[in-house]
Design a protein around this nucleic acid. Structure first.
Lengths: 217, 217, 217, 217
DNA sequence: GATGAATGAGCTTTCATTCAT
DNA sequence: AATGAATGAAAGCTCATTCAT
């Protein structure tokens, strides 16, 4: 009896299924970004992926599961990155700039994914599973904790509500991203990286020092 | 001023049509808020308005026109209010607090309309007519001008990009409203007004003075 | 104010909807008889009825509701007829012949309906609502009562289980009908009525007197 | 006769294929009984058989062939048993009781097969090949011959149509079986055998002696 | 104005069947 | 023999929109 099991397929191993699945997810992201969730037909996704539409249903229960998967499989990675920043031993200001850069660069590196996230997933929470809401909530909690830690360390003012503060920070970035997603805020591609760097610093700066004149306001 | 408002006048004047139209719009707002634009059927709107669904097409070209009208007819009023605040002769801080209160109270007073605006209209901007994008853009421009005016008046720091600054301010408020719309941020109804007042002040405070410790950061 | 309400439609009154509904039911019976429930597409029914398939869904929730309605709306009439015979003051033998004739003539007069009943409804009880099973059960109970009444009146032997006896009677007729439905048992159309009369008498005769030779068996 | 039945022989003989085929048939019977022919997916059958669904197509041309085979391979055995009874040299009454017992016990011993036969095959006769109809017809002809033989032997009345008589007999039994298949007629499992014995005798009794009072009716 | 019957494009989804490995 | 990825026909159903009355 052969110790080595000869595979018929010269090609991929056990991860072949996973590969295809990801392939479909990528296609779905592209199509959702272009047409929106409701405007996208399953056949559009299949065509984008270069497969028959029936095959989509081998990998996903239905269209909605695709959207949920897009969120779940990528959001956790983002969350971990944020977590890493929050828990590091660095000045709060550095952390804020890092998180801002992380969010903005997400759009620069994966604009379609961010577009789907912002336009299709975030705004449809009404129907989202509680799991999804909780996942987004975790992000806000991390920012809130960052603020609270800064307050306890004496780096941030203690007379401001940490929850509202976290909204201010996240909201500022979210709007910039949304504006980019909707192509309302135009930025030259070559300048995108440096623009985002500037925005990250500016947001953190306003967040920490405010816009008012010293001693004035 | 007439004490008795005659309805169902035999010879309907121009405003009878307008009344019915508004009636349908109100119904549509309620239904869109409940079911979302895509989840709402024209017949749902008609039932909510207490009319036959065929009649909807006497007042609106199609379902999308209803959504657009919801935006257009109310957004201009909002814009005018913001304009009034921006152009007034008051300290910048006052203006910021006023605008924040205006936005937050919009949700308190017309939660359904704001829900539709945030979830259905903003999201579909992709397909929206340029007119709609421009209308939203005008709002951002007003805030940007407010910042620029403050900078020129010496009330605000001049070393910060006014556009980014306006994003910070609007984004912070937008997130709070979105959180309320999605019912993620729970507030007791009785406490809503005072909560929004506090949030308005806090946002303006962070925006002006920042979270950093004086002399530190 | 006019006492007479002038209708726009010259045609049907309040029962127009009902008429159309019945029209669709008739078409469905014809199509189900020809193609079977599973083989029939809603569009087939619509074409048979001369309408657009979408209209079918104005009158029925879905395809299954059509099948259920076919059963419900006609079975009750049949049950009432049986009930009338069972409760009459006549010799048991007459009643049996009448019921046999009723069942057989149902096929002669409405062969398509009986075909659908026998092939599509009766045999799919697995999925049927309890209501349907109960409705069929009532028929068997009526026959059983007929037997029991005959036993108590001294017309029928008392040493035979009435339930089994009712099965014998109904089963005999059902098989004849099924054979006709499946076109296994060929009968000339002109001779159908008299053939069924003969069968009705024969079944009742066997049921009452048996096939065995007097004193033998 | 070999005591040890070798399975999985390296060099499969002709019966290995046959074994697997039967294995699939058994699985199909179970699945058809549970879900119905239309409700059963080929993959359900394969899962029940513990094989890949593609393999089903090595043994059967398609799903319908499975159903036909279920009928054909078992019906002939049933027919032979009936034939044996009919051709034996015994009183007609004995033969009738034997056949009744044979039919009823078929359900007791192989309820799933009978369920499929009654609900799925008989129902689809419409589409069945003429071969299937003929096979069922042969059964009726055997019963008819039994009656005719009895008439010629002077055991049964000659004034009754033998064909109709055979319908009465078969129909009575069929209804009992259908009632059991649909679980309308409930019988305790332990009592099933004796119940069926009683029913067999009762049916034959009614068939021979009738329900009417001697000299009355 | 008002109604709701009527239409049919267009979608998601299922699943029998094929076939490369 | 065995697998299950891949295909795509086919069907049910929804609902925006039209239009006769």
């Amino acid at each position: 009896m052969p110790a080595v099991q000869v595979k018929f397929s010269a090609a991929p191993d056990g991860s072949a299924r996973r590969d295809k699945r990801n392939h479909i997810l990528d296609a779905a992201i592209a199509v959702f970004a272009r047409l929106g969730y409701h405007g996208a037909r399953v056949s559009d996704i299949a065509r984008e992926a270069g497969i028959a539409y029936g095959l989509v249903y081998h990998y996903f229960k239905n269209k909605e599961e695709i959207l949920n998967t897009i969120f779940e499989e990528r959001w956790s990675g983002f969350l971990e990155a944020v977590e890493g920043i929050v828990e590091a031993q660095r000045p709060t200001q550095d952390k804020l700039v890092s998180i801002a850069a992380l969010m903005l660069n997400a759009h620069r590196l994966r604009p379609e994914w961010v577009k789907v996230l912002v336009l299709e997933i975030q705004r449809s929470s009404r129907f989202a599973e509680p799991g999804q809401i909780r996942a987004v909530g975790r992000f806000f909690q991390l920012i809130e904790r960052l603020v609270r830690d800064g307050q306890e360390a004496g780096e941030l003012r203690r007379d401001v509500d940490a929850e509202v503060a976290s909204y201010v920070f996240v909201g500022a970035l979210e709007i910039v991203i949304t504006a980019r997603v909707l192509d309302v805020l135009r930025v030259e591609e070559a300048a995108e990286a440096s623009y985002y760097e500037k925005v990250a610093c500016t947001v953190a700066d306003i967040f920490l020092r405010g816009l008012g004149q010293e001693g004035g306001g």
